[in-house]
Amino acid sequence: MSLAAAPSQVRTAPRARLSKRIRKAADATVWIGIATLILTFLYTPIVVLVAFSFNSSRSLSWPMTGLTLDWYRKLAENDQLITAVQNSVYVAVSATALTLLIGVPAALALDRLDFPGKGVFRKLVLLPIALPGIITGISMLILFRLLGFGLSLETVIIGHATALLAVVVTQVFARLQRLPHSLDEASADLGASGLQTFFLVTLPNIRTAVIGAGILSFTLSFDEIPVTFFLTGRDNTLPMYIWSTMRRGLTPEINAVGALIVAASILLILISVLLQRERTGQGR
């Protein structure tokens, strides 16, 4: 019976395979189409921004009149803008460092320790993320006034750190929850002190979460306006500066700043990818 059936099977097989291949190709085309649409939606504005930063004409109209680096040169001569960028970097780096320094131990305490009121503590730590920036800004403004603090970039840092703490704690805590407690116990069992366990076992395993939370915090702090608006003194951060110049109309200079920020973001993403790859490569 199998002998008789064999030839017909051989004949039909290529045909079936062909139709299967066509169906697969059709599927792939549809998916590629959808993916292209999504990416276009996401990235067209950024491409336009970068393109116009090289446009020789002041007007934002298509087609572009010619290529120039004038706007980048102008940008390099704009002291106000450069100070604003420096301020923004200072605020974002400090706020990120501060939130990590408080947030990582807080997440550890939430995960590893048992103390009365833990549930309430956890919810209260996470609450600021749900508060509008305006509320954080106004309330801290009032508090700083009451305490007699002058407003400065440092008050902005504290304001940002407050809002960002929730981000760091959430991310690091989620990672810690997936890390078996037996790792800590095994480390202690093998004679390691609490600090050794943290640096040799816990931190390497939550590193990607810490880096991720750090980068997210940096980005959120870098382009933050509401809290900064209330808490800054005379100093301007980059978003505040851009916002204030926008009132005089959109200039290609702003496009150039935007293009530089995009470049910096890509660099940041590359660094984070590299850092995370090194971690998985270590074991081999």
Partner: peptide, 19 residues
């Protein structure tokens, strides 16, 4: 635990995944 001369074989092995 870190000062006792006993060692434990954990049920889930507890191997350090990054080493």
């Amino acid at each position: 635990a870190n000062q006792r001369a006993v060692n434990m074989l954990f049920q889930d092995y507890a191997l350090f995944p990054h080493m």
